[in-house]
Each structure stands twice: as C-alpha cells, then as structure tokens.
Design a protein around this nucleic acid. Sequence first.
DNA 1: TTGAAAGCGCTAACAG
DNA 2: CTGTTAGCGCTTTCAA
Lengths: 331, 331
Amino acid sequence: MAVTISDVARHAGVSIATVSRIVNNLPGYSPETKDKVEASIVELGYKPNAMARGLVNRKTNTIGVLLPCVTGRFSSELLRGIEKIAHAKGYSVIICNTDMNGERTMSYLKTLSEKRVEGILFISEWLTDEYAVFLESLQIPVVLVATSNPASPFPSVKVDDFAAAYSATRYLIDHGHTRIGLISGTEKDPIAGRPRIEGFKRAMKDADLRCDQACIAFGDFHFESGIAAMAELDSRGLELSAVCAASDEMALGAMTYMHRMGRKLPEDLSIIGFDDTLDALMAYPALTTLHQPIELMGERAMDMLCSGTADDRQIILEHHITERDSVKDLR
Amino acid sequence: MAVTISDVARHAGVSIATVSRIVNNLPGYSPETKDKVEASIVELGYKPNAMARGLVNRKTNTIGVLLPCVTGRFSSELLRGIEKIAHAKGYSVIICNTDMNGERTMSYLKTLSEKRVEGILFISEWLTDEYAVFLESLQIPVVLVATSNPASPFPSVKVDDFAAAYSATRYLIDHGHTRIGLISGTEKDPIAGRPRIEGFKRAMKDADLRCDQACIAFGDFHFESGIAAMAELDSRGLELSAVCAASDEMALGAMTYMHRMGRKLPEDLSIIGFDDTLDALMAYPALTTLHQPIELMGERAMDMLCSGTADDRQIILEHHITERDSVKDLR
DNA sequence: TTGAAAGCGCTAACAG
DNA sequence: CTGTTAGCGCTTTCAA
C-alpha cells in the first residue's frame, strides 16, 4: 500500500490538489484531466489513506460498540441491527467485548478515544460513574442500548423492563397460573435485574398471588445458571405451575432441568422467556416469550448515534408476547 | 478532544518532542520534567491521536473480520476467540457482516484497505477470485477461517470437513444405523458443503450403505432450512433411522420438524449435528454433535495473523464427537 | 481549470 | 536532558 496521492499526481502529470479534487468529487478540473487521473489511480492501484484524511477532516467514520458478551443471541442480533445501519451510513464498527470487566472496559474506552471514534454504543451493562465520567469527557455521541442511566446525560434505547416483566407474568396469570416462580437475572443489575423482578412482583401482588423471596431464584442470564436456578426453585417444594425467566437462555436452562428430571413441558410446568431470540424459536417446546425488538433496537440506537448527540431522549420500544408452546392454559 | 500534544507541551513548558518521549516511554528526560508533563497530561485530559500516530508509524493496530452472518452461534463463538487474542495483543477489530453478498463484501474490503487495517480474517465463506485478487493486492496478512482455498496464497485454520463428516456418519453407523439421511449445507459451498457431503457418502459406501441423492436434502446451514430439509427427507419415505446434519442449527430444525410431527427423539430418529455450539447443548434432546474447537479456531487465526504473513500453512484443528442424547444405540 | 503551500497531530532524526 | 525540524498522506485555502 505504498502508493500515495503524490504518486498518482506524478504519474498523471498533475498536482496532488487536482487528484484530491477528483477523488473527492469536488469541482475544478477538465474532463480530460479527470480521465487521465482516474486511469492513473486504477493503474497504480491507489487507495486513499483514511488516516491521513481523518487527520485533516477530523473524521474517522468509525464507531465503537461495547458489549458484555459477544457470544449470545441477544448481542448478536443487536449487532446485526447496528452493523446494518452503520454500513449504510458509511461507518465501520469496532467491537469491544468487555466480559463485564471494569478494567477491560476502561482499556477499551481508552483505545476508542485515542482512535477518535465518532460515537459509542454502550450495551446491556450498567453504566458506572467511572464509565460515565470518561464517556462524557470524550465529547462524542453515546447511546445506551438495552440499559439506561437517568443520572447520566446519555440517551438510551430499550424496552420498559418493568412493564415487560409485568406483562410476561400477567400472561401466566391470565392463563390460570397462580403458583409462579421467577428466574431472575442478577439482582444488582439495575436494568435487566431489578425492574424485571419488580414487574414480576407487582403483577403477582396485583393478582393477590404469593411472590416472596422463596419464589425467586437468581441466575446470570445464561443457560447454565438457568438450570441451576430451576433446580433451586424446584428444591423449595413450592408446587409451581409456571416460571417466568428473565432471559430466553435461562428459560431454556429451566427446560433442560425439567427434561432431565423427566417432567413434561408444558404439562408439568409452564415457562415464559424474555427476549425472543432465535433460541426461543428453536427450543422444545417452542418458547413463549416476551418479545423485544432486538435488531430494531440496534438500528434505532445507531440512527440516534448518527443524528447527533443533541437529543437525550430515553426511547422506549414496544414489547409484546410471542405465543408459542411452552405455556399451558389452565383456564 | 481538542487537546493536542502541543497544548500539553505549552502547558508543561517543554517541547512537543519531550512530551512525545514521555508518552511513548522513550528515554531522554529528567524525572522532574516527566512529572510535570504527566501532570499536564492529566490536567488537560490529553489523549494521543491514534490517526496522527498511525500516519507516521504506519500502524493502525486494527484488523478486519469479514463474516457472512454475525447472528449465529458459530460466528459469535469464533468472534469471541478472535477478540480475546486481538485485545491481548493490542488490536482493535472491525467487524464486517457480508451477508454473503459480493458487492457488500467488496465494499467492506475497500473500506478496510483505506483504513489500513493490518490484517484480515476471512470467515466461513468461499474465497472467490475477485476477493483473492483484491486481498493479495493489499499486501497484508490474511487468514482464512473455517474455509480455505488452495489456489490462494493465504493460510487457513479449519477442521478437516471431509474427515469430520465421515466420522459423524461413522458414529451413526457404529451405533447400528443403516438408513441414514444427510441434511447438507449448500451444495456449491466447496468447504462446508461438498466435503461434508463427500465425507458422508464415503462413510456410507465404506459400510455398503445406501447414499444416493435421495438420501440427501439441502439447506443453508440455518434453522428454518433444517426444518424444510427434514420435511423433504421425510416425504421421500426412506424409513430413515438417523440423520446427519451439516450444522447444529439445521439439526435443531430437523428436531423441530420431528417434534411437530409428534415423533419421538431419539426413538423415532437419531440426529447428529455439526459444530457443537451452545445450541447443541441447549437442544432437547441434547444434541450429539461433531465438535469443532470454534473459539480456539478464532484464537489460532488471530495468532497467525499477528505472527506475520510468512507461513502459508493450512492448519487443521482436531475435531471429535461430543456425545449427548440425540442418537439412539441400535446395537 | 490548476498548482503551491499551509497545516492536521504526531514521531524521529539531528543538533545542542 | 531537551528542542528544532522534517515529514507521514491528505484537504483546503489562496493565487494564478
């Protein structure tokens, strides 16, 4: 990649300014020079150096995405939406797998800032003060996806987790279930954790149903933890007829536990998931779950990132229940 | 991000050269100046501009990853491995979701070349001549992952697809199955398609079993196509006792078809998958599948990318069968 | 329609 | 130990 703009200029017998104009589709040259220069470009295989360009126009056409775990349907589907819009608008996306690790995250943030990314998408993770302070200092658009932090100045795109959990629980109740357990995400998580727990509890209370701590088991949103949480719930002898899970993966974990115990689904236990990733569709029985418009969430977030940092709106996307075969109707 | 090296220099009352030395940990300054400068850096919130740096040292510390579909466990798990090593070695990774689209791919390739990425990982897709020519012109390390092209000069990391398919089929045969179908990927795919078909056929022939075209249905490696392919196979009245799928997702599709038809697994049909992603573990019954060391593949590829373009070795990683519950032993 | 020249922010000799 | 200076490859006035 040694060929530079001056190589082209020399080869075509013009100045670098002219080559630049032609490359950038600016006016100011005769058709003949244009042809001549374009021929040289092809012949030499000239590729403008984005760094040099970026240095002068202060543009990198690159954004950064921080996510807790690249492996996982939720992240993947989100990434798909992000990538789609990013490419359409001419941006490249740098992915940063934080592994939920603070140091790692800060290290990425540092890199992204040095690389002068033009925006950052912060996904599915709680925005700590440390992150917030750093991000603010960057003076670039940031949008929180599937998370939010009212104390920060950043806009966000997510569903209403409380309402969503309420509605998932309500769905179970409406189908005649009264003894319902919750497989929650991490309790400390202020976004995908607590609000979903509260939504569950509220729905249960509104229906005068039991929902003390005994009905709740905690996981980390992933499969294995779903198995463990279901085992835990099962060991408490609550005679549950249904379980609400805070993620599809944990719901599948619960199913796996039941299968292993030789129980029938949904006859012996109804399960509702959360997310509606491909996992839900592939499960057996196919998982009834709370649908989040994941890919759309990624698209909207990317749109916001591009449309400038101005609007600090908290966008709430619609959710709904996708009915499949994992909930038995007791009515 | 307006603060530059000269702001720091001015603030600290030294020259930019000194600041540069300190920032880059080069020798040549007294402890006092160092402290002074570092204080200024913190106070002003100076972040070295990676573009400016890159322009002079011709380094971007960035690599590009081209993959057909970010959504999908295989890609995700690979990405995890790639990202892990990349971060450890100080590289950022730009993801490019080609969607198996030629134009889109070329457009990404162009962008990556202008951004002067230092290496490219080309994943799971057939390397066409067009791509190969372009990639060669870039003069940077390229490694093919889960694909390969002997006609190209690029090294690759993958499993032996023929041998793997042979061994998956053989596993079924060893468990007493004689009427076995294949849910193949796209026939034209010279890597994940044909070799797996050939491996299947060879295993069947070696055992004197029927394996004509009627035993094979084609999908596109994804879930829905697995359902369709299984339906197709089923409609041919072959009395199959087992099916070999060229991806876990298609295997799950086949399972879903069977469940929908009210058949029992693995009693009515044994199924073996390919990949051993988390999907296989979460399936019901848990899927016995041909294990590819996916994350490791990503790590190795990234290692090769960094260790220079010198070795054009075709690395073949070990595969094995992960036994779970989807294959019935007929012996 | 064209070119010369001044930077963009930084590194790397080369002098002191 | 420290500063000056010449680029890295490109865009963008400003003149011609």
